[in-house]
């Protein structure tokens, strides 16, 4: 997406955060800090040389803490999400008629719902990230704007427990209907489902009754 379009988008929605720009600023700050450290070190080396002392150890750059975005990424509040999406879809300058996917990331202290929108005609794409608190993971559903979001939202609900308000049919899609918990959450602990426990104990009773080997019939040859 061209910088002019991004500026136009940010002008229309001043509360939207341009995450890619924030990343660039953070990177610049980190680079500057590093440059300052290096200058300091250079001075220390020269001072040591002049005083005849051993030179200080060379510096090692710490691992960068900057979070990298590849491509235009925007942080959107969930109250504003539907307006932003509708505007992006209906504005002919942006024409985001295609929704690639809806998903979420579990950051342990919060969730981030991710929308990837694309314009087939204008050949640009944008990522929207909506932070939601962990104890109240609700976002408005975008199924009214893109029909294709229906299954993607069901999947995000199933695997991460994000509740999409206004979704026509929000139920589990990949896991069975009686599954407990949301498997892609970072604090998920697997528990055998009840039916599996019953089947296994039934099998164990059968083995105890017949004296059959766990591995079944046949011997190692």
């Amino acid at each position: 997406m061209s910088p002019e379009r991004i500026a136009q988008f940010l002008e229309r929605f001043p509360r939207v955060r341009d995450l890619a720009a924030e990343q660039r600023a953070e990177q610049a700050r980190e680079d500057e800090e590093w440059a300052a450290k290096q200058r300091e070190w250079q001075e220390a080396v020269e001072r040591a040389k002049a005083e005849g002392k051993p030179a200080p150890r060379p510096l090692k750059r710490e691992e960068s803490r900057v979070y990298h975005y590849h491509g235009p990424t925007f942080g959107v509040e969930r109250e504003e999400l539907l307006d932003v999406c509708r505007w992006l879809r209906d504005n002919p300058e942006f024409d985001m008629s295609y929704l690639s996917f809806v998903s979420a990331i579990d950051w342990r202290d919060r969730f981030e719902v991710v929308y990837h929108l694309r314009s087939p005609a204008r050949r640009h794409s944008v990522v929207l990230k909506v932070p939601v608190p962990r104890d109240d993971p609700r976002v408005p559903s975008v199924t009214g704007l893109w029909r294709g979001a229906e299954w993607h939202e069901r999947e995000a609900y199933d695997l991460l427990g994000i509740v999409f308000e206004g979704h026509p049919d929000l139920r589990r899609i990949l896991m069975s209907a009686d599954w407990k918990g949301h498997p892609l959450r970072k604090d998920y602990v697997y528990e055998d489902p009840q039916w599996l426990v019953e089947v296994a104990s039934q099998r164990q009773r059968e083995i105890a009754a017949t004296g059959e080997d766990w591995e079944g019939r046949g011997s190692r040859s």
């Binding site: 900057v66 990298h68 690639s100 998903s103 991710v114």
Partner: peptide
Amino acid sequence: APRGEVYVRTESARGDLGIFLVSDG
């Protein structure tokens, strides 16, 4: 991988196959 996220799309035999990869370093 450095901290960050990336979304890559390719054209597979079935269509638009993408991976959204998030790294915490």
